[in-house]
Design a protein around this nucleic acid. Structure first.
Lengths: 301, 301
DNA sequence: AGAATAGTGTCTTTGAGACAATATTTC
DNA sequence: GAAATATTGTCTCAAAGACACTATTCT
């Protein structure tokens, strides 16, 4: 049967139905995208012979409008009727960083009723990974200023409570965001409840010092995802320039994972993900290192 | 400084700003939740001595209204202004299956502009895993009927195209959904593009025979997530009854992964996730098996 | 006895952690 | 030569694939 001839209970065809459909009768939430834009940058060198330390950075903007006026928030904005979520995320990324050719991935959608005091807002968070070189940050529309913050992520407590067959797993994470002028601290509690056959994850902000909305929770979620994914995918290379040494790559893994790695094991692990070039670093104050590039033939699984 | 005294460029405090805020001036999309409700059920026994085969099932509803009238869709519905996304998902789950104490997880949010011919609709998909026993399915409001479909997921083609340093990874998946009365077939192409420093995943429906909206893409995404997560988490136990044999557990792994497993290796892998009881199956036509339950002390990582 | 599933033992391969050892450059 | 990083080698341990073997019940 021709689909166009199908009639519903009111006797309408699909075309007739769509012509008579009034979308305005339902109340609708606002939808925004919020961007977690990460990069890894070099800090100043301690000593001319040592390697420069790297650190994981996240871009935040200072709010110039209510609500949370003067606090720091993730860059983001409303999704318009004529763009997809991905397009809105790309637009926001471009607005804030002036780059658009980067790795981008949707993370999670935040839908609590009172997340935003203005009105009902549902926010879809995206993570972008940017090569630290050649970054030019400009402030967006409704932001006084955009700044990179060093990210420190520390698990303060992990606790499991058993009640018969039910159990609750709680993890308390402290996130410290800092740069030359500001230090923001957030403590987020992640609660996984298994009660009977029900399972649910909840997040709770214990402290959100200077961080707007529920953005501290989004940051906690994003860092966790980044840490998980760097272990089994190639996303780390999106934080790297075209050519890099294995020590630089290791440093990027170390700052995102927040722990030191043994170089022998690290080199074995990433051996298939890189191709060597015949170029070397020079003037380093010590033995030069071979430069590598990403091996596009690598694939996980 | 007291936050309440902060004034914006118009000289308003936060309270004054919120009182004057008019949310209606921006056009807003509709937001829905779509539920991927999976279960594993026994099929009829071939032979009285053999074990009953299990199969992975997904719940679909036949649409009784336009658009896609008469086609099969994921259960779902609009998110109201007074409920969170999780609450809306839980409400839809309860409406369709009459259960609510189950595992539930947000998957992905689908935001293409023309996903729905009625109006701009953004859909947040959730996965729920239900123990097959004690399921009572009832139809929802705008659905003629709800039915369980067997899920078959088959990768037809995997292809990588290299163009210098850029490359495209394409995967073509065929999903067949079937029960006694209907067989639906979908072919979804997943495209991962790495062009320059840009990375993006796209999905494309090649065939979506009898499946409404972009729900075939959602199903492809969900099965992939389920398959990944069953390998390194305990979610499989949400598909099991309280007591089960290791063979039954293995069957659940096999039908969700779509491949056979070696029982020696399987038993080693899940050894720490289960606790034995002193009960056994009986009247099975062969050697009885010890019954196990989930070990709540197990934790991954 | 035969059918069918339940459950164990062991050999091999693979990958990661630990740590020692060697190599190369600049100052 | 000293400082500093680069790079390789090897021992050990843990997990998973492969496959053979033993055990138990019902008809």
């Amino acid at each position: 049967m021709d689909i166009e001839q199908l009639r519903d209970k009111q006797g309408l065809t699909e075309t007739e139905f769509l012509e008579s459909y009034d979308a305005s009768i339902y109340e609708r939430p606002s939808v925004t995208v919020d961007m977690l834009i990460f990069t890894v940058m070099d800090e100043a060198k301690e000593n001319y012979r040592k390697l420069s330390e790297k650190s994981l950075k996240l871009l935040l903007v200072k709010r110039g409008v209510h609500p949370y006026l003067g606090q720091w928030a993730l860059p983001g904005g409303f999704v318009t009727q004529t763009e997809s979520l991905d397009e809105a995320a790309l637009r926001e990324l471009k607005t804030e960083t002036n780059v658009d050719e980067v790795y981008m991935e949707q993370l999670y959608t935040w839908g609590d009723v009172s997340r935003d005091p203005r009105t009902r807002v549902i926010s879809c968070s995206y993570m972008a990974l940017v090569d630290g070189s050649l970054l030019e940050v400009k402030a967006g529309d409704d932001a006084d200023e955009a700044r990179w913050f060093n990210v420190s992520y520390r698990v303060l407590e992990e606790k499991k409570t058993l009640l018969g067959k039910d159990f609750v797993f709680e993890k308390v994470v402290r996130i410290t965001l800092s740069n030359h002028t500001d230090t923001l601290e957030a403590v987020v509690k992640v609660i996984e409840k298994y009660v009977g056959k029900a399972f649910m994850v909840e997040r709770e902000m214990v402290v959100a010092n200077g961080i707007a909305f529920d953005h501290a929770e989004m940051i906690q979620y994003a860092v966790e995802r980044l840490r998980n994914k760097i272990e089994y995918t190639d996303i780390a290379f999106n934080l790297m320039p075209e050519l890099f040494t294995l020590s630089e790559l290791q440093q990027v893994y170390e700052v995102t994972l927040g722990k030191e790695l043994l170089s022998a094991a690290f080199r074995r692990k990433i051996a298939n993900m890189v191709t060597e070039t015949n170029q070397f670093t020079k003037d380093a104050g010590h033995r030069p290192a071979k430069l590598f590039r990403f091996n596009p033939n690598w694939r996980y699984m």
